[in-house]
Nucleic acid binder design. Structure first.
Length: 1055
RNA sequence: GGGCUCGUAGCUCAGCUUGGUAUGAGCACUCGACUGAUAAUCGAGUGGUCGAGGGUUCAAAUCCCUCCGGGCCCA
């Protein structure tokens, strides 16, 4: 025979969690749980970048993942839970450069690419270990022994296969693109890499005069924040529909937008006169003289160039002059307009951000540092109109923080623009949570997508598997190491990283030699290929067939343009299908101050800190309870609140298990089905509540709304179980014998608590395991871990919404009685003679009558009666109090008389008359008949002396406060019982020890009263002998107590 | 500047889809009770112009528009 086990009294997170970790390890629980399950569920982990230790925000991400994985496991799924790590890319290169103290590509080449790559690799592997330890430490059950790593050969081959497919589908392109360029890293950066790091800069912006051809003293006025792009100027853009003017000032004529006149000539002394107004289209093809023609001779060879072009998209009137300097080599918008007009995309800037020979005078100089010189040159040529300090946001390299420049460069790219429609169609099939993340945000992002520049002029990454022929220029894309070997006979083992792979040459059809392009892939392509690469596709089809596509991915909102996107693109390139069925997007974590957590701000909170102070479960309950897709503002106060709740939860299990254990209760012997006919209403009620909870929590979890589940679970435990149900069954748990109703309470309680434990297992895996091990694991037929239990399903038959409603009424009524007691200063221990519930509602009446027992017990009242509002009204007395502040101004010196006349009225009759809409008059000496208006009086309802009332939502509750000897005796007896219980506890007696007790009463009346209750008292305090006397106790250690102002002496002794 | 999103009690947040008095929840605070869950538990009370302003409606925290402030993303 088995029974409910005991558990420790206090919740201490540290020993609990350490113990559970050890238990899992010892019994290989994690492996057993992971190996079980039938249906497939492919969870795809977004690979974190391995350069920084994780903070509570990163932890949130993994904890969310863990909760859902556990949920699906409990539902019988075989969950693929391979974690991943993003291990290539520029960030690691930068970290390694810092570590070995070098700064440029030149230095890397000098130390040897081979050595550099080795350093990057060991850095990445080292950090993978650190991150793994941190994630494991959170209690995240993923396959930490077999993560996918983007640096593995087979992973690289998968990416190659995708690129080969892209080439076959003619989606791989090469050509000139205006790109964000980091002059320090000497590589292109994708737009999204750049925009991670927009920073506010205050710089000199300039107004420049472009001389109109064939006119003296007439200029187009332009404005720019990047003087260094002027050597590449090819045109001026104006808006065809905006109004422009020719304005005269200081002997010169300027062309600019009318709307900008005021700002441009705002300086004191700058007067102007408008000569002419016209729309921008009028300026079309107006030719001007390039401002730096002399400094940059190459300018004279540009054609067509130096003319006004029209654009209705890129010209604004927010700043500048409405005439926009256009350099197609240095701006995406400029480039677009340039293509439309056939302008040359002149870009005299090299990889290091230095001007080339083509830039004439400026050749060899760093572009941003040339700004000053260019301004000086313009000034000396009389072309500088004015300068202005301007704040503007400027992109910086996401890792090395160098300001970026825009330049034209030849790059490899994926023709995403050709795939747009397909991407949008596939996105329609994806379930996004919340739905606006996909419909609105991700959809918009795809609609605006541009071609994806994938080549990076760097070292540590997946080398582009593209070989180009030196003679005929043809290219070939290789899809695997095997294919590479076939194409290059004599090649031994292939290390696909640089520089080894660079040495492999292929033979071209034309007979020429093919060499690999030196670029590596954008690191986003690594992670973007994860959906199939971690399955070993295309080498291993089996894994792929079994799992792909992913059932769920879950990442932060910043991944809209990151992983969510690249994952989709890579998959559509390869399979023309979305790689995931569901995407859950979560918010960002900010610090207490509402700002993002940053090392530099010193506001980072690490999970280890929270774990140390409050435990993993506390962190998990708190974070999982936050609305997933909103920002999580981490506060210690909330953590403390969560810890307090978990304490209540623990205490509830402790309390329940204590009594069930004491009574040798075995839930296997008494299921709720077995005790059906002994179930009380409150038992049925909590079971009904539980079933509703199971249903809602299951829906919430399945709908990726774990926070709804957490909030629901919290409310149930706190309000329904701890504060209410436990209170209702307390008396039953104190009975000694095998009372069937006690057994029914235990059966109910264990049913509720075991099922609740299953529901919280994915949220708080440690605490639930600890409770389970102590309380339930010893029972027959139970598995060794809570995580091996099946998720419960809700029983519709046991749901009883009517009963739940009735309990609501009952709770209200009892609470109202407490309020009334408080007003009457009668404590709960003192029994009341009767309570009247005033209601006109049949359902309220039914509820009160049906659950009379609960009310009598909880409100400590002898008799409950339901009366109608009319009956209630009849019990009341109504007093009218004349409203002097209203009567005074109206009746002046007669108001005293009016007032007494009103007081003399029968209040009840007056109110009833008012309600019928009839008038009420009083006879006042000297005034005759006066009508009593409603506002002349305030109405006071009064119950008879012995009653108190309190209103609640369902009516009104009257309590009868009449005292009687019998009631007093009962109250007194309860008081004495409490004192003895207190003494038992202080004497450290076991709950089941027996005692003898002696009570010295303060008076003969009290003695007699207590004597009449002796059996009850003795029973409740487990006294085999009980003496009530006026003498002093003659054994034990007597203690003095005060009850209702009188002195009692009590002594007890264990027997 | 554009897209998406958030703005409800001192704090952290429900409610908004499907308009109907916010008995809003927890915490904090005040008062009280309990003392066989006690470094626990329970009750009562204080506290909101639901970011601001307009509109639709008999009725708006909820629907629409504008604005202000925070976040993510894009320029």
């Amino acid at each position: 025979m088995s029974r409910i086990g005991k558990m420790p009294k206090d919740y201490r997170s540290k020993p609990v969690e350490e113990g559970v970790f050890a238990y899992w390890q010892e019994r290989a629980i994690e492996e057993k749980v992971r190996g079980a399950g039938q249906g497939k569920f492919y969870f795809l982990d977004g690979p974190p970048y391995v350069t920084n230790p994780i903070h509570v925000g990163t932890a949130w991400n993994k904890i969310l993942k863990d909760a859902y994985i556990r949920f699906y496991r409990m539902n019988g799924f075989r969950v693929r839970d391979q974690p991943g790590f993003d291990m290539h890319g520029l960030p690691i290169e930068v970290m390694v450069e810092k570590k070995i103290g070098i700064k440029s590509k030149k230095e890397i080449e000098r130390m040897g690419i081979e050595n550099f790559i080795e350093a990057c690799k060991s850095f990445a592997l080292e950090n993978l270990q650190i991150a793994t330890r941190q994630f494991k430490n959170l209690g995240v059950w993923m396959d930490w022994d077999g993560p996918y790593r983007t640096l593995d050969n087979h992973y690289i081959e998968s990416v190659w296969a995708m690129l080969k497919r892209a080439d076959e589908r003619r989606l791989l392109g090469k050509g000139k693109k205006v790109v964000h360029w980091c002059p320090r890293c000497e590589t292109v950066l994708a737009g999204y890499e750049a925009t991670d790091e927009y920073r506010e800069l205050e710089e000199e912006s300039i107004y420049v005069k472009f001389k109109v051809e064939g006119k003296e003293n007439e200029y187009i006025l332009i404005w720019t924040t990047t003087p260094w792009t002027l050597p590449a100027n090819a045109a001026v853009m104006v808006h065809p529909d905006f109004m422009y003017v020719r304005a005269r000032s200081g002997g010169e004529t300027y062309i600019l937008a009318e709307a900008r006149l005021e700002h441009v000539f705002s300086d004191p002394g700058k007067e102007y006169e408008v000569l002419e107004r016209f729309p921008g289209s009028y300026l079309r093809r107006l030719r001007y003289r390039a401002p730096l023609l002399e400094e940059v001779p190459e300018q004279s060879r540009l054609s067509p160039a130096h003319l006004v072009v029209l654009s209705d998209q890129f010209v604004t009137l927010e700043e500048g002059t409405g005439c926009v300097h256009t350099a197609p080599g240095h701006g995406e918008e400029d480039h677009a307009v340039g293509e439309e007009y056939g302008l040359p995309d002149f870009c005299p800037v090299d990889e290091r951000g230095l001007f080339t020979e083509e830039a004439g005078k400026y050749a060899g100089k760093s572009v941003r540092e040339t700004n000053g010189e260019i301004i000086e040159d313009l000034k000396s040529k009389g072309l500088l109109f004015k300068t202005e300090k301007t704040k503007h946001r400027y992109p910086h390299c996401w890792r090395c923080k160098t300001p970026l420049i825009l330049r034209t460069a030849s790059q490899w790219f994926i023709r995403v623009t050709d795939l747009k429609e397909r991407l949008l169609e596939e996105n329609e099939k994806v379930e996004w949570i919340p739905d606006w993340a996909g419909k609105a945000r991700f959809g918009n992002w795809i609609k605006n997508a541009k071609d994806w520049v994938i080549s990076r002029q760097r070292y540590w990454g997946i080398p582009l598997p593209i070989w180009v022929c030196g003679s005929c220029g043809k290219h070939r894309v290789i899809g695997s190491i095997e294919e590479l070997r076939e194409n290059a006979p004599g090649t031994g083992d292939v290390e696909p990283h640089r520089p080894w792979v660079d040495r492999i040459r292929l033979k071209c059809e034309c007979g020429g030699e093919m060499q690999r392009v030196p670029d590596v892939a954008d690191v986003w392509m690594d992670s973007g290929s994860a959906s199939f690469a971690c399955l070993g596709y295309p080498k291993s089809r089996e894994e792929f067939e079994r799992w792909w596509p992913a059932d769920l991915i879950l990442e932060g909102q910043d991944q809209t343009r990151g992983w969510f996107y690249t994952l989709m693109v890579c998959s559509v390139v390869l399979f023309n299908e979305a790689p995931y069925k569901r995407v859950l997007m979560h918010g960002f974590t900010t610090a207490q101050d509402g700002r993002a957590m940053h090392k530099s701000l010193g506001n980072v909170v690490f999970p280890e800190e929270v774990i140390e102070k409050f435990g993993r479960d506390t962190l998990r309950w708190y974070e999982l309870g936050c609305t997933t897709w909103e920002d999580l503002r981490f506060t210690w106060k909330s953590i403390e609140e969560t810890a307090r709740f978990l304490n209540i939860l623990w205490s509830t299990y402790y309390f329940a298990s204590l009594y069930m254990n004491l009574d040798n209760f075995d839930p296997g012997e008494h299921t709720i089905g077995d005790v059906e006919k002994h179930l009380r209403l409150e038992d049925r009620w909590i079971i009904s509540k539980l079933e509703g909870l199971i249903k809602r929590v299951t829906e919430a979890m399945a709908g990726c709304r774990v926070f709804d589940a957490v909030r629901d679970l919290e409310e149930f435990m706190r309000d329904d179980v701890s504060r209410w149900y436990i209170k209702l069954i307390r008396r039953r748990t104190w009975t000694e014998e095998e009372d069937p109703e006690k057994i029914a309470a235990y059966a109910t309680l264990s049913h509720v608590l075991l099922n609740y434990l299953k529901l919280i297992a994915p949220i708080v895996p440690f605490m639930s395991e600890e409770i389970y091990r102590h309380v339930f694991a010893g029972l027959e037929g139970m598995p060794e871990s809570v995580h091996m239990l099946r998720w419960p399903s809700a029983s519709e038959e046991r749901m009883d919404p009517e009963l739940e409603d009735e309990m609501k009424v009952v709770k209200e009524v009892i609470e109202a009685s407490f309020s009334a007691r408080q007003a009457a200063r009668i404590k709960t221990r003192m029994p009341l003679l009767r309570m009247k519930v005033v209601t006109g509602s049949e359902s309220v009446k039914a509820a009160v009558e049906r659950m009379r027992g609960v009310i009598e017990d909880q409100a400590n009242v002898k008799e409950v009666e339901v009366i109608t509002p009319e009956e209630g009204w009849r019990m009341k007395d109504v007093v009218l109090i004349p409203n002097r502040s209203i009567l005074g101004p109206i009746f002046r010196e007669k108001s005293g008389l009016v007032s007494s006349a009103i007081s003399a009225l029968n209040g009840k009759e007056v109110i009833e008359a008012f309600e019928r809409g009839e008038g009420v008059w009083v006879e006042v000496e000297g005034l005759g008949r006066v009508e009593v208006r409603k506002d002349y009086v305030s109405v006071h309802e009064r119950l008879p002396e012995n009653y108190r009332s309190e209103k609640c939502r369902y009516g009104e509750v009257f309590i009868d406060t009449t005292r009687s000897d019998e009631l007093l005796a009962e109250g007194l007896a309860r008081d004495v019982v409490r004192r003895i219980q207190e003494m038992r506890k202080r004497a450290d007696l076991n709950v089941d020890d027996y005692i003898k007790a002696f009570v010295k009463a303060p008076s003969e009346d009290v003695r007699r009263a207590l004597e009449s209750r002796a059996t009850q008292i003795a029973g409740e305090v487990r006294a085999k002998e009980l003496r009530i006397s006026l003498q002093e106790p003659d054994f034990g250690a007597p203690e003095e107590w005060e009850i209702e102002g009188e002195k009692y002496t009590i002594s007890i002794e264990k027997i």
